[in-house]
Design a protein around this nucleic acid. Structure first.
Lengths: 219, 219
DNA sequence: AGCATAAATAATAA
DNA sequence: TTATTATTTATGCT
C-alpha cells in the first residue's frame, strides 16, 4: 500500500526502476544452499522459499518486505542519501537508535522477519517525509536529515616519499597498529591522525589485492 | 563548423530554464565562486552561470547535460552497476576506452562541455540498452555488462623465465617506464601491453614491500 | 589521458 | 551496536 508514496523517484523520468537484485558486490545468495547453524532465519533466506513467503504465525508478507527493501534503496539513492544519514536521521526523529549497519542489513534483508516487519513502517514513513521535503528543495531535505548542507569531501592528502617510506617500514613491522600507535605515528610524521589510520586501512587493502594478483612469480 | 556561429546567447531553444535544486550527489556548484586558473571551465562550473547555460560557439545545452548526468547516476544505481562496470562495458562495446574515472567525472560534471557533449549520447545509448536487457532478466544484464563476445576478456598470462629475466633487467635500469617504453617492451617480448604494465606495477610494489630501508626511524 | 590511491560508503565481524 | 574490512568513488598528479 504505502510503497506508492515514492514521489521523488519520478525524477528518473521514464526508466522502469527494476532493481538489479544482486549487484556483483553482494554475496551470491544462491550459494547459501541452506540456512546455517541454529541461527534464526533471515528474510533474504526465507523469501526464496515459496512455501514460506508468508511467515507462519506472524503472517508477515516477506515478498512485500523484499519489494520494499528494493525500492527503499533506490529511493534513498535518488535522494542522494547514505545509509549513515538515514540511520542518524532516524535516530534523531524516531525513538530508538538506528545504525548504518541496521539500514544496510534491512536493505540486504539480512534481518529477521520480525525485525523487518517492525522496521518497515518506520522507514516507509520517514522516507516519504524526506521525499516531501526534497520536493520543496534540496536544502529542506538536508535540514530534515540533520546534516550540514554541504559536508565537503576532505582534500586528498599527498604523502611525501619520505613519509611513505616511514609508514611502510612501520607497516612491515606491524600492519595493524593500535589506536595509541597510530596517534604516535601521526604526531611523529606530523600528519592528521585520521589520515594515518586510513592509510593503514588502505595499505592492508592494497597488500591483499596485490598478493592475489601476483600470478607471476617475480623473484 | 561554419553554420553554428550564433553570436546571440539569448536563443535558448527549448530548455526548461527552471533550475532544479542541486542534488546532493553533485558538486556544490555554488561554492565555486570563480573558475580557477587558466583551466578550461567545466560543465559543473558553467551550468550555474545563467548567461552561459548554452555554451557559446558550440551551442551545447549545459542544463540538459546536467539533467542527464543526474538521471544517469540514478539509473545506473538502479541497475546496480558501478562506475567501473559501466566503464569496462563501454570500453568493450564502444570504440575508445572509458575509465572509471571518466564515468565519475561525467557524473560529477567535472568535464569540459565538449567532452560531455561527446560522451552523453554514448552513455545514453548504452544505458538504454542495459535497461532493456535488465528487463529481460538480471542475468541478461550481467551478460551484457560483463562478457562481450567481440572484445573478449584477457587471458591470464604466465611469463617465461626468459621474459622475467628481461623484464627484471629493464626494471633495474628504469623502474618507472613511460607508456611508450612499456609498449615497446611488450612488443619485444610479445606480451600484451597491459600485462607488462601490471608487471611493473607489481614489481614496484614488491620492491616497496620488501625494502628494508627503515634507516631513519622517524624523528 | 588515465593511473594510483586517498577518502567515502557499504558490508561484515566482533 | 561498534569496529573493521571490503568495495566504490573521487582526485592529485604531469
Amino acid at each position: 500500500s504505502a510503497v506508492v508514496t515514492s514521489a521523488s523517484v519520478t525524477t528518473v523520468s521514464q526508466s522502469p526502476i527494476v532493481i538489479a537484485p544482486q549487484p556483483s558486490v553482494l554475496k551470491n545468495a544462491t550459494t547459501l544452499s541452506s540456512i546455517t547453524c541454529g541461527d534464526i532465519a533471515k528474510v533474504g533466506q526465507l523469501v526464496s522459499k515459496p512455501q514460506q513467503v508468508v511467515s507462519g504465525e506472524e503472517g508477515i508478507n516477506l515478498e512485500e518486505i523484499r519489494e520494499f527493501a528494493k525500492t527503499f534503496k533506490i529511493r534513498r539513492l535518488s535522494l542522494g542519501l547514505t545509509q549513515t544519514q538515514v540511520g542518524q536521521a532516524l535516530t534523531a526523529t524516531e525513538g530508538p537508535a538506528y545504525s548504518q549497519s541496521a539500514i544496510c542489513r534491512f536493505e540486504k534483508l539480512d534481518i529477521t522477519p520480525k525485525s523487518a516487519q517492525k522496521l518497515k513502517p518506520v522507514l516507509e514513513k520517514w522516507l516519504a517525509e524526506a521525499e516531501h521535503w526534497n520536493q520543496k528543495g534540496q536544502q529542506n531535505l538536508m535540514e530534515f536529515v540533520g546534516g550540514e548542507p554541504s559536508k565537503k569531501r576532505k582534500r586528498r592528502t599527498s604523502f611525501t616519499p619520505q613519509a611513505i617510506e616511514v609508514l611502510n617500514s612501520y607497516f612491515e613491522k606491524n600492519a595493524l597498529p593500535t589506536g595509541q600507535e597510530i596517534t604516535e605515528m601521526a604526531r611523529e610524521l606530523n600528519y592528521d591522525r585520521e589520515v594515518v589510520r586510513v592509510w593503514f586501512c588502505n595499505r592492508r587493502q592494497t597488500l591483499k589485492n596485490t598478493s592475489k594478483i601476483n600470478v607471476f612469480q617475480v623473484q
